[in-house]
């Protein structure tokens, strides 16, 4: 009886899901893509992934120690950032690229804005764009031992034909984690089944991009062209793992649909009308910046309010 009379303040029902358990699931979901990248590009890729993850985790640890803050390395968010960043680097990049990128992602983009949950931009993508602008030739050098040609997207852009099957499997040149559509979808299915992410943003993103590519790509709704655009480059990795980042996506449902469509259109504009063949990173970063506005216009009306005013 006395147990029933227990008085405590809310919340009374607590979920067992914690930040670290979600982040750990994301890490597990990224392992197929990372594993395939190592299989595809060899030991260089493994070293780069290890260095980048070590760099993000150590940066977070060192910053929090120096600033006398609670050390939050245990929540795996730095591991996710490091892993995502590494999967976005070409396997030919020297090790110090991973270190600079990791320090920039954690120190400048995440910690200076207040740590996990406060960053207005996806740290891994911001670091990738920082590296892409700073060291353009290193970041776009995809010529490794296994592959010598251009990336599939660059080949499409210059009008050459590409082999769709090898793009879906992932036996093409590109960044470490982006090549294999199958491995990425495998990880994404894992996250969707566990309820960590849902299909709202990736679905809207991919559909709106496919529509945009069909309308403006210059090939009409040619299935071969559209599927090559979908399987090529960082679209899948970006749509499932970076656009869905809890911190930098909109929280409102309608906002997430709008956000997905916005990313699709931006990616289409960058890929089709831009000078570069790839545009997922910049599209998601610009989308991140617009998230506060998207949330503002999609704010649901609270119960008991009419048209945003008290009834």
């Amino acid at each position: 009886m006395s147990d029933l009379m227990k008085v405590s303040s809310n919340p009374h029902v607590r979920s067992k899901v914690t930040t670290s358990s979600i982040m750990l699931m994301v890490v597990i979901a990224l392992l197929p893509a990372a594993g395939f990248g190592i299989y595809n590009f060899g030991v260089d890729a493994l070293i780069l992934i290890a260095v980048t993850v070590a760099s993000t985790v150590l940066t977070e640890f060192a910053y929090e120690k120096l600033m006398n803050k609670k050390v939050t390395v245990g929540d795996y968010s730095a591991v996710v950032t490091g892993l995502l960043l590494a999967l976005n680097l070409p396997s030919t990049a020297p090790w110090w690229i991973g270190v600079i990128g990791g320090v920039f992602a954690i120190l400048v983009v995440k910690m200076l804005f207040g740590g996990l949950g406060q960053n207005f931009m996806n740290p891994a993508l911001a670091a990738r764009c920082f590296l892409l602008i700073s060291f353009t030739s290193i970041m776009t050098n995809f010529e490794c031992d296994t592959y010598t040609g251009a990336t599939p997207l660059a080949a499409i852009k210059s009008g050459e034909s590409v082999d769709i099957l090898s793009m879906v499997v992932g036996r093409t040149s590109g960044t470490i984690g982006e090549t294999s559509m199958i491995a990425i979808i495998l990880g994404a299915c894992f996250l969707i089944l566990l309820g960590v992410i849902d299909l709202r943003i990736p679905g809207c993103y991919i559909l709106s991009f496919a529509l945009f590519a069909g309308l403006f790509g210059g090939h009409g709704f040619d299935p071969a062209y559209i599927s090559a655009q979908l399987a090529g480059g960082g679209l899948m990795l970006g749509a499932f793992f970076m656009a869905t980042d809890y911190v930098t996506r909109p929280v409102t449902k309608n906002g997430q649909y709008l956000y997905g469509v916005l990313l699709g259109v931006l990616t289409g504009i960058f890929r089709i009308f831009g000078p570069s063949s790839e545009g997922v990173s910049y599209a998601i970063i610009i989308g991140n910046l617009l998230v506060p506005l998207i949330e503002k216009i999609t704010l649901p009306t609270a119960f008991g309010m009419k048209g945003g005013k008290r009834a």
Binding site: I100, V108, F130, I133, S134, F135, T136, I138
Partner: peptide
Amino acid sequence: YVPCAIFIMAPGAFF
């Protein structure tokens, strides 16, 4: 030393 070109571009000024 590989020059970090972003620092002589606009974003570098802010950093």
